[in-house]
Design a binder for these strands. Sequence first.
DNA 1: TGCACTTTCGCAACACCGTTGCCAAAGTGG
DNA 2: CCACTTTGGCAACGGTGTTGCGAAAGTGCA
Lengths: 358, 358
Amino acid sequence: MNSPRPDARPATPAPLGPAGANLAALRDHNTAVVLGLLRDAGPDGASRAELAARTGLTPQAVSKIGARLRAAGLATDAGRRASTGGKPPTLLRLVPDAAHAVGLHLDRDAMTATLVDLSGAEVATRTAPLAFGAGAEAVLDEVAALLDGFLPATTVLGVGVAVPGPLDHREGVLRKVTGFPQWDGYPLRDALAGRLGVPVIVDKDTNAAALGLLPRGGASSFAYLHLGTGLGAGLVLGGAVRRGERTGAGEFGHQVLQLDGPLCACGSRGCIEALCLGAVADGDMGRAARLLGVGAANLVRLLDIDLVLLGGRTVLADPAPFETGVAAVVGGSARVEVAGARSVVEGAAELVLARVFG
Amino acid sequence: MNSPRPDARPATPAPLGPAGANLAALRDHNTAVVLGLLRDAGPDGASRAELAARTGLTPQAVSKIGARLRAAGLATDAGRRASTGGKPPTLLRLVPDAAHAVGLHLDRDAMTATLVDLSGAEVATRTAPLAFGAGAEAVLDEVAALLDGFLPATTVLGVGVAVPGPLDHREGVLRKVTGFPQWDGYPLRDALAGRLGVPVIVDKDTNAAALGLLPRGGASSFAYLHLGTGLGAGLVLGGAVRRGERTGAGEFGHQVLQLDGPLCACGSRGCIEALCLGAVADGDMGRAARLLGVGAANLVRLLDIDLVLLGGRTVLADPAPFETGVAAVVGGSARVEVAGARSVVEGAAELVLARVFG
DNA sequence: TGCACTTTCGCAACACCGTTGCCAAAGTGG
DNA sequence: CCACTTTGGCAACGGTGTTGCGAAAGTGCA
């Protein structure tokens, strides 16, 4: 299928230096900010005066933005709230059905696709086994089959894909996924966009999970630690996922915790992944949790974050010892919680939605 | 002295939520971006067409911004460059003397003040001994004496202050500086701004140094490791200093590197600061460098940065073993360099200048 | 019941941003 | 000498958020 790709690069090339902004960018920014606040407000909606106070814009500007959103079908009136001594506020509310996003999680042995609406609520989910090692074309066939009839005709903004291992987020190209050399250099984003005919965004599974867990309006900096077949992290700093210069940030597994520890495949000694997985292999989840806790405490201190979220198969199989064990080491300086199993695939969808909101 | 403070809070209060932007913000942003490019271009200047290409703005917009800058005295014509087949470009250049910034480094036993022009070039520097433990009022007297007659009458944008230890960057209030309880909670920013009559910005010494080392147009993410009486770090991620939720980011000294290592005052075992300073106390700089290297390698992997800069008295007293020792452990994944002795005070001035440029 | 006040929001006019259209200036290259 | 390229300014324009003003719709007190 060679249908024209709607996600073609923007006509104006990206500037080489720090970007200037024009009126269109200004409008888009403010629109996204207001949309974000509307999403945070939920089905109850928010008044124009409220939005004005939160954004720093004048109420009049918010009114105009609201009118544009209503004309585009993205927002609608939602009745009014009780008066506080004056005219009761007219509420504006997001229209969740106005657009949808697809999250796709490709794991080593399974894949999950979820369709969410503009509010992030799940509409439908499909799961299928997957042989990630079968090669790119075979996997793409499987993905196309899974998504067949899954995408609404007109309201899909795009597909966010979460994959394990290193990749180039900007270009959507995979790099040396451990154990799967056949994927090295494969342009997953462009290939999938060509097949599906919608924009595609690719990111590491841990980054996607971190983005999906970004609490609406809550802590804007936290770390998501994923303990499964490996140990990785997704970092959200100041409300944005920290991907690093080469989308390599969050390589938490090879943080050295024991100078004279066992030799790791990466060449260092005492990597937290080797130590932690060793404890898991011994069935000693308490020790694994304490090791994870030491690494988490390092993160908390280094980055001054106040929330640590735990996920991954090993954690989810028996969350309690990890939650208490990590929290014990981290102490009072940060909260420790266990994230849900849907974190990754929800975050994959969020890769798409994040471009709509502020 | 109770002169009116020109750094009073902006008339419009900061928005509670994500900020919207208006036309004034748009103009200021673009102006700052162009000014930043002019600074990067140096005394040779840059053509309007060049600036347009780099910013993504139209040449006409750049022309208007340039006209405003010339009217404000911040930029001026700088002749023309050779033709490349058409009309030769008219060059625009920063006027370094148009404004100045002061950097002030308060250390435990000494203080340094430097006056820099808009281009960041040093104009004058003064140094004096300081008893940081003598208390806030006494130190402020010393600072006022040091800066007496040092500030140009009209062109000073502000004073950037770099201090050791924890503080609240947003409010400019010091917090529990190790060994100096008399400073806890002292509103250094407001007190100094009241005395000097110019805006004041306060930050941790390591953050200031990192900001000052941000290579113009070069690597936008790096770590600055400062080994002196303690061990700290300043993190620049994506072109901005990472300060954390409570300006506590960069607490590198208490990263645990040795699970069963010696007990540290912070309560953990095997903190890199204790290990590293122990090696320094033994006179074993090679070991200290390797320990620093393990911590640096952890940073490089975790944050995906490609530059590590070393500074602080211990490093500067004998840079060679640290540069080679850290580089040996970090390997090829990141460059390792030693920063100059003026990093902190230059960075303090940069705290002020950074608000002018993009 | 009446009236002053508060709060919210929209209409209209406005100021100002970057953009577009156009043209002059000033080089290169055949 | 002339066609072409490249640069940059002038003028008009479209569209952004802002300001001024007034209407709507409540509360609260006399």
